[in-house]
Design a protein around this nucleic acid. Structure first.
Length: 444
RNA sequence: CGGGGAGUGGCGCAGCCUGGUAGCGCAUCUGCUUUGGGAGCAGAGGGUCGCAAGUUCGAAUCUUGUCUCCCCGACCA
């Protein structure tokens, strides 16, 4: 992609409403634009990031055995009256009346709808287990949206729903998602710690939140330090095997959000291992049994002929929130530092002397070579001066920069800079391209 | 929902107290000179001052109402 053809409205000055780093940087980097409180347009650069996050989430859901589908954003109120949540959900639910005066709502979550789908098609224990998910926009009419996309009213969420014959089976589904989430966040370069959590309005009695530690996090969290750097289980996990030991390993040590925090138990953690910090919730898993299946009569017939409500769980990942969370976890004073897997472009090319024939030719050569290697580099061929291009490339945080100008070309070199470390090397173009290859720069 | 603050060219702000031709920086456009860390000079365009009533000869400025946005807290992927 060439900057001259792209849409990259970066800002030199920070809009006054943005208080935290991720919000400021997303606005400055031209990733999003606020349309109303807690409602954002995703501009091309931000949209690419969102899609990259979404794709990793999708791949790990599929790997764990979940099946993707898509439910609508608008739902009929009747479903929610059936489960009893139509009144319980309160003002956070955006209620809409259509032209026939029919009560509708913009879905804040989809337990009811998928339960209704399930009961229509699945009648037997032989249909179980089932793990279904979708990635869809949600709307929760928060009293006070803030922190940019981290607490928007409209947000993109991956929500998975599990259907099992009994609690033991449901726990196996829970474990699948638990492990899948650890792998998902690890692929994004995030250290997510699973913590015991309150179940909230979703209901149920077993729940973990996945927390990214960050000073700007919204909730206070308490955990054993060893959990923070515990490696993810890995993509070669056998999801059909027994996952319980892997889950136990990561739930044995103390970890709790403030809602369920027990100071006395926390004090049993050795003092040098106690970590009390702030965190951003990027995912949550719930087991809630028959909370919805019972009132909505989502029953299956068992082997003994009896009819029982199906055991359910739900599992959410805040896709749009993660975009902000990654920036909170990975930025410096110059701008964003994207992890390779999330970066909207993996390599940027800077033409230091726009209009100079030799420089332009070298840039084109680099561009063509990277495209041939299967990458989509972002080539800054704008008329800006070098300084402006440097600043902007640092701001948008691409992992690698190829800096090409007449001065280096005279020596037969280009400069290659790694955004994260700031390290630069002067190399021949071929050597620079080889370096990128050796660093395994590729599409996700 | 309680408390605080703000709405003035695209962005960031001043002006308001003490009413009298709407201003600055950045951005944009044109020209010239520049060109390796957000260039310089010269010129140009762009705003019914959130909206509505009121006071006044006259309102960005005073009064009342209203809408929106932001921040702190309580609640949430």
């Amino acid at each position: 992609m060439r900057v001259s053809k792209y849409f990259l409205p970066t800002l030199k000055e920070t809009p006054s409403e943005a208080q935290i780093a991720s919000h400021r940087l997303m606005l400055r980097a031209g990733m999003v634009r606020q349309e109303a409180a807690g409602i954002y347009s995703w501009l091309p650069l931000g949209f690419k990031v969102l899609q990259n996050i979404e794709q990793i989430v999708r791949e790990e859901q599929n790997r764990a055995g979940a099946v993707e589908m898509l439910m609508p954003t608008i739902q009929p109120a009747e479903l929610w009256k059936e489960s009893g949540r139509y009144d319980a959900y309160g003002k956070e639910m955006l209620r809409i009346t259509d032209r026939h005066k029919r009560e509708m709502l913009y879905g804040p979550t989809n337990e009811e709808m998928l339960t209704a789908i399930f009961r229509t098609f699945c009648r037997s224990y032989k249909d179980l287990p089932k793990l279904l998910y979708h990635i869809q926009w949600k709307f929760r009419d928060e009293v006070r949206p803030r922190f940019g996309v981290m607490r928007g009213r409209e947000f993109l969420m991956k929500d998975t729903y599990s259907f099992d014959v009994d609690e033991a089976a449901a726990r196996r589904s829970y474990n699948r998602m638990f492990i899948a989430y650890l792998n998902t966040f690890a692929r994004m370069g995030l250290k997510a710690v699973p913590m015991r959590a309150e179940t909230g309005p979703i209901g149920g009695d077993l729940s973990h939140e996945f927390i990214i530690l960050a000073d700007t996090g919204e909730s206070a969290v308490f955990c054993h330090k060893d959990l923070v750097d515990m490696p993810a289980p890995g993509l070669d996990v056998d999801f059909d095997g027994d996952l319980q030991p892997l889950v136990d390993e990561r739930t044995a040590l103390y970890a709790a959000t403030e809602d369920v925090h027990d100071e006395a138990v926390f004090m049993e953690v050795p003092e040098d291992k106690r970590l009390s910090a702030r965190g951003i919730e990027v995912g949550q898993v719930f087991y809630f049994g028959t909370k919805y299946s019972a009132p909505m009569r989502a029953n299956v017939t068992l082997a003994d002929g009896s009819e029982q409500p199906v055991h359910m769980g739900s599992y959410g990942v805040g896709v749009s929130r993660i975009a902000g969370a990654i920036i909170e976890a990975s930025h410096d004073e110059d701008g964003i530092i994207w992890p390779m897997a999330i970066a909207p472009f993996k390599v940027g090319i800077i033409n230091l002397r726009q209009g100079d024939e030799a420089t332009g030719a070298a840039c084109e050569e680099a561009y063509a070579a990277l495209v041939k290697a299967g990458l989509d580099p972002l080539y800054d061929d704008s008329e800006n001066r070098a300084g402006a291009k440097f600043s902007r490339m640092d701001l948008i945080g691409l992992p690698w920069q190829l800096i090409i100008g007449p001065r280096g070309l005279k020596e037969g070199t280009v400069e290659i800079k790694e955004r994260a470390s700031g390290e630069r090397q002067n190399l021949s173009l071929d050597a620079a391209l080889n370096l990128l290859r050796s660093k395994n720069v590729s599409a996700i």
